[in-house]
Design a protein around this nucleic acid. Structure first.
Length: 220
DNA sequence: ACGAAGATCACCT
DNA sequence: GGTGATCTTCGTG
């Protein structure tokens, strides 16, 4: 894999940031670099998820289960989940050990390993689509269950490193999270404004069975 | 043991 | 803009 400049002090600051509250941690991950499987992406879009009884959209909302256990672990480790029978998604765990919170990495710009990413993402119509969306990003990086619980700040197969250049506040936008059924008023999605790799916002439409489709659904 | 839903994507019209 | 794919996870009985 190609080497890139890296400052130890910045890595230490990143570790401190991840150990704190999830929302600033999410914001701070914009511009950071994620490497796996010979591909490096610059993170362009993230979402914050809080812990038990705080965030109805969080996988940890109903407490600890075998699936979400990594969310309760130390900051800087990976929480990987499998969904819709076919997709992997990657989160960076945040906050103190024992408390559940994590940042979903939703999109990135491929900066090294372009050929490798393209070969893993044959369906991508453009390079901007290679890691546009959380499952596509994992596919481009070759991330799957084997990354579950691993430390991303060490020398493992999946590595998170600080941004080469900080992303300034004017370049950052915030809005509702994508694909969650509730909490549409909470602007915990952060992205780099105007970046072509950021996924389009779509309001979540719950899957309805045919019998339910004809029936009116009560609004909150 | 069973069923329903899911932090999505690709492909169709 | 709509829908099928595909299977794990967890709540309930």
């Amino acid at each position: 894999m190609e080497a890139y400049p890296e400052a130890v002090d910045d890595l230490a600051r990143l570790a401190v940031l991840l150990g704190g509250p999830v929302v600033p941690a999410a914001r701070g991950l914009l511009g950071a670099r994620l490497s796996a499987g010979g591909v490096t992406v610059r993170i362009t879009e993230v979402e914050a998820y809080a812990g038990t009884a705080q965030d109805p959209a969080s996988h940890a909302h109903r407490g600890r289960t075998p699936r979400n256990a990594a969310m309760f672990g130390p900051a800087g480790h990976a929480y990987v989940y499998f969904t819709y029978g076919m997709h992997w998604c990657l989160n960076v765990v945040t906050g103190p050990d024992g408390e559940a919170s994590a940042v979903l990495v939703r999109a990135g710009e491929v900066v090294t390993g372009l050929a490798q990413a393209r070969s893993r993402r044959r369906a991508a119509r453009s390079d901007g689509d290679l890691a546009r969306g959380p499952a596509r990003l994992c596919a481009a990086l070759g991330v799957d269950r084997s990354a579950y619980g691993r430390n991303l700040l060490g020398d493992g197969p999946v590595r998170l490193r600080p941004a080469l250049e900080p992303v300034p506040d004017p370049a950052v936008a915030a809005g509702p999270r994508v694909g969650v059924t509730g909490a549409h008023d909470v602007p915990w999605r952060f992205w780099i404004t105007g970046d072509p790799t950021v996924s389009a916002y779509r309001r979540h439409v719950p899957r309805r069975r045919a019998a339910e489709a004809a029936r009116p659904v009560a609004e909150t």
